[in-house]
Design a protein around this nucleic acid. Structure first.
Lengths: 333, 333
DNA sequence: GATTTATTTGAAAACGTTTTCAGTTTGCTG
DNA sequence: CAGCAAACTGAAAACGTTTTCAAATAAATC
């Protein structure tokens, strides 16, 4: 009836050695005579013994599991990061517990705590904003936490990102250089540091060095959704914008489609640049020009960094900035 | 230096009760005098005690964790299912360990085994095909496994899907009724039962009841990628197809864009129907007509089913078929 | 071949819970 | 207020590993 599991003890008995020895061979410990090793291995094979990772976790205080907190896997941007994370996690023999937070502050805190109670060895956090409450929790725990594609103004945790300020600044400069006097900045919630502190800053700097005064009528704070994008055309027109720097690909796709549907041609009458270079940029017509980010790599590097932290290795650089690029496609002139 | 963790024993001592009692209040067991409960709760609060889920798992043989095997989270279709799974998992206090298999047979088997060694309480599997090896592993374990959006010809595991045969048949019938004499069937690998056994069957049935002979020149077996889709236009034209039933949204988007780029207008000169109704269908121009599947719900229902199985509850229907729909958008006449 | 040193091994104590079973209280009943 | 059932509580044994420490064995040295 019952699970009828083979334990390390069964193997020990059958192989006529102690549990300790079995444990050693299972863990590849060198201090075991080759003959003994073979004997044990044979029994393991014969009995089809599989170590119980939970017991192992309790005894060793390591679960080889890391927690991954993500706003929504359904979002291409985060899905790509998650994929990078999982791949290098697998490479280092970790599994990931994936949780969606919907960027909800309470949920984030709650989920963090259940991950900790599950004794994960580390956590990679993705989120648009780190609430004070969450930051407190981060501080409280000894479990290493790294941020992937997410910034914290207070810079307390290791993180991997691109230089959002520089990327946006460069793109907006290009837009201006091409003759756009009124470039809109369409972004997600400004209370999120990545938008309110970094990208907006890049936008302002580009304006400044072009000698164009900042006009807050040109900044559109949205909820980052496709739908919202489709509805933005009238507002954009009413402020005489001729181009938009957009912080999310779905949002940008919405804007473009909204424009097209209203008879405005992109890029001739309106230029659009987006920020995440997800594959959506290629699927939409015209294809969207974008800041390119090494999405997969951001996840992968974050996870790699985490493995070092979990291993108590020295890390030279806790703030890693991966290179970004500018991909000209068809939504810009 | 060390983690300095508060254990149940610390709470017991401080509250002057036994571990058993603390355990009871933590687990909401009714047999505790209210006064005692309060006393313990206060100490828990004061000491900030957090139960160790690993120890709990070992003692209770339940981990409140389920494994989720998915070909690739980066694929919208699966990401949506995964989201549904996670949401109802959370609802029932489970966490999910998410692993990407790339539909690789060895990887699937390997990952299944590591999930089992981690003592997950259940597994939801998504995959295009169930290899014999994998099926054997499925049979070996007592851990409940349900398939989400995935069919197994041998029908051994509970699953949740839509009626792929009927859906495709219906869509192809519509295409034929609208005057298309040569409807292409563009699909992923035919060795995958979902394509080779189900969708293709629907296609054939539609043909048959319209009295059109099956022509295998009209079936295009692909790898389900956007890129491949963009390259298909010449082949499609060369067999005089005037419409295509496509089994994947990204693939379909590729086909449409390939057509447009070649100057063929959709839907006037070529109609396209796709199968998964991911949000991509709305973002592309023209918007794609699609079979609609309750993606999120497929995941959600699968997870709900799994909770019942894990709980040893009776389940009336092990093969659940959720309703599909047909969404007419702009890629069909 | 007696020592010394290195290599292998095993016994038993963790790890932090849940759970069983017996014992203790408490509350009722008449 | 005896007697009995019901409600509550605690001791201790799991759960299946890892790890420490000492003991046993083998190898090396002179």
């Amino acid at each position: 009836m019952d699970k009828q599991t083979i334990t390390i003890y069964d193997v020990a008995r059958e192989a006529d050695v102690s549990m300790a020895t079995v444990s050693r061979v299972v863990n590849g410990n060198a201090n075991v005579k080759p003959a003994t090793r073979k004997k044990v291995l044979d029994v393991i094979e014969k009995l089809d013994y599989r170590p119980n990772a939970v017991a192992r976790g309790l005894a060793s205080k390591k679960t080889t599991t890391v927690g991954v907190i993500v706003p929504d896997v359904t979002n291409m941007y985060f899905a790509s990061l998650a994929r990078g994370i999982d791949d290098v996690a697998t490479m280092y023999k970790y599994n990931i517990i994936l949780t969606n937070s919907d960027s909800n502050i309470e949920k984030e805190v709650k989920v963090l705590n259940t991950l900790l109670s599950k004794q994960v060895d580390g956590i990679v956090f993705m989120g648009n904003e780190i609430s004070d409450k969450l930051r407190e929790e981060f501080k409280r725990t000894k479990t290493p936490i790294v941020l992937a594609g997410s910034v914290d103004e207070q810079n307390l945790n290791p993180s991997v990102n691109i230089d959002y300020v520089a990327a946006v600044q460069e793109e907006v400069k290009n837009l201006i250089d091409r003759g756009n006097k009124r470039v809109a900045f369409v972004c997600g919630p400004l209370e999120q540091a990545i938008n309110g502190k970094f990208r907006l800053e890049g936008y302002k700097r580009a304006l400044k060095s072009a000698g164009i005064p900042f006009d807050d009528k040109l900044v559109f704070e949205t909820d980052d959704t496709y739908k919202t994008g489709t509805l933005l055309q009238p507002a954009l027109m009413s402020v005489n914008a001729t181009a938009a720097m957009v912080t999310d690909d779905e949002l940008a796709a919405g804007i473009m489609n909204g424009m097209s549907d209203a008879g405005i041609t992109v890029p001739d009458q309106f230029e659009v640049i987006t920020s995440n270079d997800t594959k959506l940029t290629e699927m939409v017509r015209p294809k969207m020009s974008s800041i390119t980010q090494p999405l997969y790599d951001i996840g992968a590097v974050a996870m790699r960094l985490l493995t070092k932290l979990m291993n108590n290795e020295e890390v030279d650089e806790k703030k890693v900035l991966l290179p970004y690029g500018l991909m000209k496609r068809e939504s810009t002139k």
